[in-house]
Design a protein around this nucleic acid. Sequence first.
DNA 1: CAGTATCCAGCTAGATACTG
DNA 2: CAGTATCTAGCTGGATACTG
Lengths: 147, 147
Amino acid sequence: MATMTAAQQKAQAKAEYNAFVAACPSRKLLDRISDKWVTLILAALGSDGPHQLGADCAGEPRSMRFSELSRLLAGVSQKMLTQTLRSLERDGLITRTVTPTVPVTVSYELTDLGLSLHQMMRGLKTWAETHMDDVLANRATYDTRTA
Amino acid sequence: MATMTAAQQKAQAKAEYNAFVAACPSRKLLDRISDKWVTLILAALGSDGPHQLGADCAGEPRSMRFSELSRLLAGVSQKMLTQTLRSLERDGLITRTVTPTVPVTVSYELTDLGLSLHQMMRGLKTWAETHMDDVLANRATYDTRTA
DNA sequence: CAGTATCCAGCTAGATACTG
DNA sequence: CAGTATCTAGCTGGATACTG
């Protein structure tokens, strides 16, 4: 009605805000790239190896098979690898190519969109390499000062 | 010893890889910014309002009080706001200033490091605004094709 | 080879109540 | 005003086992 309790108003504001945040493109992007395996797959297919120490060559996008990825990203479970690859394909960031050999061969490759995202990630990587040491140092200082 | 079972080798590789990923600066940065409220607080203190539609003025970093933030980020719980602010302070991304009035006044402001991070986030935001529509379209296509 | 299916443990966000 | 403390429900990632 005309009058709502303060609690009701607050609840409504919260619901609206959450809806707004959920709709925000930046938020959606963050949700996508914050996934542990997304970034690693991107890096693997982006041809500089999976964060291979200092290897920063920007060559051709690589095509990799499921098992190759599985071996390269040693920490990933089959479930998560499949799930992540599927979601990346769904978003048009990678292509999935099935070759009907016996047994089947499946290979993955970055699309232009995926490559573009990978490029953006490099900017993020640069910031990380430039400033994360400071952050870590601040963190250590804070902890000793608090302890 | 000299011989390990295949399972043992795999487990070790996994452990090493996970350790490697955990140590990666990019990963740490991602962990930080992927937090829902971190980005919103950064945006709020970064003076363009919390993703206020199209308001992209890059003015002076703003100083805001706890209650202001709480009101602005309508969806956040007290617990998460406190927790997030604390962690940002710990990382040297924001400063926390207590003024001993009665009752106390606490204000938060971006540091240079925080401002730099906020600047980087804008690059991310730009990518999101440019390409997320494509991603969403791909997603929709994939879903209808699958359904 | 490249998955799918199922089940469970751990973490975390949120609600709630209290305080200097 | 600006927190702290506690408890719980829900989601998610991993282990495991099975298949075209």
